[in-house]
């Protein structure tokens, strides 16, 4: 009986090992994404003051990059079907482009 248990434990080990390695990897990837988002936020804040009116395009580009990071990494679209990723990027790309066009002087 104990030999059977030992055999079962041995068989389960690689799967458990893979699972336990998966979580730290995911947490590390999330932490990197979070740091990038914080860095980009700080950059756009500093750029908005130093570049004043010329900051429109860089700030909107940073906003688009941040939305992509949140969607692909935090919302898990990175492992979804490519069409879903494209749809998401097109939606936010179109919104940011519309904001850029609406903000430019007529």
């Amino acid at each position: 009986m104990s030999a059977l248990r030992a055999e079962q434990a041995e068989q389960a080990e690689p799967a458990e090992r893979a699972e336990s390695a998966e979580l730290p990897r995911a947490l590390r990837a999330n932490a990197i994404t979070w740091l990038l988002l914080m860095g980009l936020t700080l950059t756009s804040f500093l750029v908005s003051d130093s570049l004043a009116r010329a900051a429109l395009l860089p700030i909107l580009a940073v906003a688009a990059a941040k939305c992509s990071l949140v969607g692909l990494r935090f919302m898990g679209l990175v492992s979804a079907h490519p069409l879903l990723r494209v749809g998401f990027l097109v939606l936010f790309g179109a919104l940011v482009t519309a904001l850029w066009m609406a903000s430019r002087a007529g």
């Binding site: 009116r53 940073v62 949140v70 969607g71």
Partner: peptide
């Protein structure tokens, strides 16, 4: 629920630069 929560992030990531950072380019 997580997707809804992240949606609040996404919307704020557009509201924040538009309302707070951009002063209107010319």
């Amino acid at each position: 629920g997580g997707a809804f929560w992240h949606m609040c992030d996404l919307i704020w990531l557009l509201v924040y630069p538009t309302v707070y950072l951009l002063g209107g380019a010319s």
